[in-house]
């Protein structure tokens, strides 16, 4: 917190555009604010909206890197804005753009919720089982390592940063994204889920699924939860290749 220069000015350029307003045109707007110690982009944008521009749109909820609401492009890189510290931008110039690949609501606000909902339905992002659980009885035993492996992938917060950093997604609008593939791997290792590889093949066994990934790994490079996406996508691809070839 101490390496802040006192009273530094931050110049923040933001793409403003309201697609619902026919008079609106995409415009870069410059805001200058005083930097504060420990300032995150959450605090900076809040200051801009309170003091300089009441109609600037963006999304924050938890402001602690947990809820996944605030993905945006900061100097071209997709990040969670709440976890981004202004002091890391040495020249004090920051450019903010909405994440690509999602429906733009306004300015920095994009509809990740709608996209993720579609993704969840597409890959069946829930436990598929024919068993009914008697919740009064002692729970089924799960190997601790398996539970832990499932949790590792369950940590995805569906922020959309992997989708916004994906080259395949640009070429193939229907690409399910690392988030969708990760969901499939997560359920495939969860002992409660009865789906088999052949079921997953039906979901993702094409170029909009596992075979569309070009392994450029923008997803893993930018994932704020540092999920092992490269390894898990490769793992799933091997399994799906076997399905295809049988």
């Amino acid at each position: 917190m101490s390496d802040i220069q006192e009273d530094r000015d931050l110049t923040i350029n933001i793409l403003k555009f309201n697609p619902h307003d026919t008079n609106s045109r995409p415009t870069m707007v410059e805001y200058v604010i005083k930097e504060r110690p420990g300032m995150s982009l959450f605090l900076a944008l809040t200051a801009i909206r309170e003091k300089l521009d009441h109609n600037l749109a963006y999304d924050f909820v938890c402001r602690a890197g947990i809820c996944g609401s605030c993905g945006m492009l900061v100097n071209g890189k997709p990040v969670l804005a709440c976890k981004t510290q202004t002091k890391d931008y040495k020249d004090g110039n920051i450019t903010l753009m909405p994440m690509p690949a999602f429906e733009l609501i306004k300015d920095l606000s994009v509809n990740t919720g709608k996209w993720m909902n579609g993704m969840s339905k597409r890959v069946g992002s829930w436990i598929h089982t024919s068993e009914s659980t008697d919740i009064g009885k002692v729970e089924r035993r799960i190997e601790p390592e398996v539970a832990n492996d499932t949790f590792e992938l369950d940590r995805c917060i569906e922020c959309g940063i992997c989708v916004a950093s994906c080259a395949t997604k640009i070429m193939r609008p229907e690409f399910v994204g690392a988030v969708g593939l990760n969901r499939v791997v997560r359920f495939s290792i969860d002992p409660y889920d009865e789906r088999r590889d052949s079921d997953y093949y039906e979901l993702i066994g094409d170029d909009d699924g596992i075979f569309g990934c070009m392994s450029l790994m923008g997803c893993e490079d930018h994932c704020p939860k540092e999920l092992p996406l490269q390894e898990k996508i490769a793992f799933m691809r091997r399994k799906m290749v076997n399905q295809r070839d049988t």
Binding site: K137, P144, A147, D190
Partner: peptide, 18 residues
């Protein structure tokens, strides 16, 4: 306790005992 067990069956990967 029933809620925990229901959630386990809905996919909460509760940390397990070794």
């Amino acid at each position: 306790p029933k809620a925990i067990r229901e959630l386990a069956s809905w996919g909460v990967p509760w940390t397990r005992i070794t």
